[in-house]
Design a protein around this nucleic acid. Sequence first.
DNA 1: GCATATATGTCAATAATCCTGACATAAATT
DNA 2: AATTTATGTCAGGATTATTGACATATATGC
Lengths: 161, 161
Amino acid sequence: MQASLQRANPLFLSDRELRKAMELLFFAYRDFTEEPDAILAEYGFGRAHHRVIYFVGANEGMSVSELLSILKITKQSLSRVLGQLLNEAFIEQVTDTEDRRRRLLFLTEKGRELENVLSERQTKRIAKAYREAGVEAVAGFSAVLRGIIGEEDKKRFFDNE
Amino acid sequence: MQASLQRANPLFLSDRELRKAMELLFFAYRDFTEEPDAILAEYGFGRAHHRVIYFVGANEGMSVSELLSILKITKQSLSRVLGQLLNEAFIEQVTDTEDRRRRLLFLTEKGRELENVLSERQTKRIAKAYREAGVEAVAGFSAVLRGIIGEEDKKRFFDNE
DNA sequence: GCATATATGTCAATAATCCTGACATAAATT
DNA sequence: AATTTATGTCAGGATTATTGACATATATGC
């Protein structure tokens, strides 16, 4: 497809263009997780630990089942990861006073510190990308990612915006 | 100083805004790989097989070592995955006539078909997101992802554009 | 109050995936 | 001829995920 036709019909998306987007996502996601992965390895943790720390930090007081439904993993898988984080005091559980079956999750001071270190690397990377791309690019970035996210996740996490 | 003000930066990007970007990337990448993962599972394949099929399809005739350096995994890891794809005739190897040590990789007809099915799901998802977000958003999306990608990968895969 | 459902946790077996390390072969390069 | 490069393989082990079964405490509906 020639450039002239692309200009004439900007919504025509070439296969090449779409595949380039796939590669961009692949490399961006890999490089985005590279630094935190290296830090986590020093603690004997993996990416799953990061996700738990991140989401608990972003939703203090969430329940175990809420966390499970965000992560979409089995409770047995979460058990190992969460168990380590509890044992090593990065996360603490508090029985919900309103429903004593539920265990609400919180970051400890130590957990918050690790969360800060990990997020700092990633937010710095994003901030750099935002600065380089310009403010107007940020809206496009967000809009396209939202379009890629499935309806279910979008409703649950990004609807109130 | 409050946490939200700690990470000062020239564009006044709030901590909340940057964290939202992290979540968007997480959910987008997960949902983006969900459909292909389900298809691959029917063949007894995983995401690693997808990556091999994708990159060989996008770079027909590439060598094993080139593939290894793109994927950043060990040759032992690739061996299992590539061995399966060779055994089941999704990929074929041809000895390079110019350097008979090298084995050039190609998709077979069968491999190309699978590649098409997998990519179709993902390109449809991206095309939908592009259409919804509008042309100007696509440029922003690409620009920010490029900024997130590390220098090394950017030079190797996106420099000539 | 009793039966049922929910939230959480745990034990066991299994499978997938990736890793390190060692070694082997063929072919190219110096 | 010696060395390096490209590829492949075997062996062992670590990690992470899965399914399935079961246990406990608590809440809820009737």
